[in-house]
Write a protein that binds this DNA or RNA. Sequence first.
DNA 1: GGATAATTGCTGCCTAGGCAGTAATTGTTA
DNA 2: TAACAATTACTGCCTAGGCAGCAATTATCC
Lengths: 175, 175
Amino acid sequence: MKHYQAKTYEARNSVGYQVKRTYALMLDALEPAFAAHGFTYMQYVVLMQLRSGAAHNLRDICVSFRHDSGALTRVIDLLAERGLVERRRCEQDRRKVNLHLTPAGLATCEQLIPLVVDRLNAAVGDFSRTELDELNRLLGKFIGGMERELARAAGAPDAAPAPVASGTPEPEAVT
Amino acid sequence: MKHYQAKTYEARNSVGYQVKRTYALMLDALEPAFAAHGFTYMQYVVLMQLRSGAAHNLRDICVSFRHDSGALTRVIDLLAERGLVERRRCEQDRRKVNLHLTPAGLATCEQLIPLVVDRLNAAVGDFSRTELDELNRLLGKFIGGMERELARAAGAPDAAPAPVASGTPEPEAVT
DNA sequence: GGATAATTGCTGCCTAGGCAGTAATTGTTA
DNA sequence: TAACAATTACTGCCTAGGCAGCAATTATCC
C-alpha cells in the first residue's frame, strides 16, 4: 500500500522527518552526559554490545548498528588503549578478531548505563507500557521494511534478515 | 513511570537502539538515491523546508532539524552557488537572512521527492494506515519527551515548545 | 538613553564518519 | 588442487558535522 504520494508529499508529516528529529534529539541528550564521563555514544555502544554478548567482533557491531567499519576500528583502538576492551585473534577463523570486555570495561558499562536509563525514562515518562511496546514494535517493523528495500536495491531480490551475533564465541588466542 | 531499570537494561530492547538503527537504515537507503542526482540528504532537507514554508531562514532549519548552524551555512552556500536558493537580507530584522527557492530549486524538489516517496512507501508497504499514524504519533510523543528532558537539562525548568517557523515571512531586499 | 544581553549568521579548527583500497584468511568451484 | 570470489579488519584520504568565537543587529533593563 502506498501511504505517500509525490504530489501531496510534505516532509514534516513523514516518518522520515520524525526519525531524523528523534535521533538528533536523542544524541543531543546523551552525548553531553557521556562526555562528562569522558566517553562518546559510539564507545558506549561498543561496550554494551560486548557486555550483552550481542556482538563478538567488529563486523557484528557494524551490521547491527550500520556503522562504518573504518570508523569503528578507531573507536575500538581507543577503548583498547584505555584497557576497556581486549582484541584476540580468533583461532577457528583467523580473519576475525574477537573482542572482550575487561573488568574495567564492565565497570564502565555499569557507570554509563544509568545515564541512558535516566534520560530514556524521562523521555518516555508519560508513555503507557502498551504505548512503549507498540513504538518498539512499529520501529521494528519499519526497520524490517527498510532492510528489505535496501536488500532489493543491492540487487538481492530475496530479503536478507540481519544475521547479527550468533550464540557463543569461538575459542581464541591472545594476539 | 520508569520503564527502564539500570540493573536489567539491555540496549537491544530499548527505543534508543531502535531509533539509531532506523535512522542509519533510512540514510543508507536515501543517500545513494540523492547522490545519483548530485545531491545530499541535507541539501534536500533545506530545499523541502523552504518549499513548504516551514522555514524561512537558517535558524528555522537548525531548530527544526537540530542541525549545526555552521554546517548548515555551508550547505546553503552550495545551494546558492548552484542557483537553487537565494539569500536576501531581511529589512525588518537585519540580523536575519531570508532564504528563497528559485524556480530551479523548486524543480529540484519535484525531481527528488519521488525518490523519497518511493523508498518510504517500500519501507511502510505492509503498514496499515492506523499503524503508520500510530508510529507518527508515538514518535511525536517521544520527541516531546526528549525536548522536555533537554530543556530541563539546559536549566530551563519550564518545557520549551519548539518555536519553528511562524506564519508568513517578512519583507526584504536583495543583498 | 546607554550599557548589557540575546539573536542571527558566519568562519576556522578539529574530530568522527563515509569511501576506496589492501592484506590476510577462508570459501567455492572448475 | 589451483584459480577465483568472499569475508574480516585495517589504513589513508576527504567531507560533513560539532564547537567556539566573532561581527552585526536587535531586545532588555536600569
